[in-house]
Amino acid sequence: MSTLHVVSHSPFTDSRLASCLRVCGTEDAILLCGDGAYGLHNAALHTKGLKVFVLAEDMQARNVTLPDWADSLDYAGFVQLSIDYDKVNTWL
C-alpha cells in the first residue's frame, strides 16, 4: 500500500520531515507544501530515492529552485496525486 506524505512544516524549525523520512516506504512519496517547500534544500530527500513533489506556488513564494529530482504541482495535480496513492498522511 502506497502513502502520500504531506509535510507543511519547515525542516529548519521542526523534525516532522526527518520523522517522515524514517517511516517512508519504498512506494511512498512526499508532497512538500507551505514552509515544507524548504525541504527541497534537503539532499537526504533525494538520496533515499523517494518521489518528491512540491506545490508550485508555495515553492515560488519562497524563491526555492526546483531540483531535477523533484516535481512541482498545482492544486489539480495535488488532487490527482491523492488519488494515485492509496492513503494520504498529513504530518499535522
Partner: peptide, 25 residues
C-alpha cells in the same frame, strides 16, 4: 481541517476542495 482560517493550511484546504470539485470529484 484542523487549523483556523488565518492559517495558510486553511487556504490550501480550500484550494484543494475547489480543485477536487473542478476535477469532477
Amino acid at each position: 481541517l484542523f487549523s483556523a482560517a488565518h492559517a495558510p493550511s486553511s487556504r490550501r484546504a480550500l484550494l484543494f476542495a475547489q480543485a477536487a470539485l473542478a476535477g469532477g470529484h
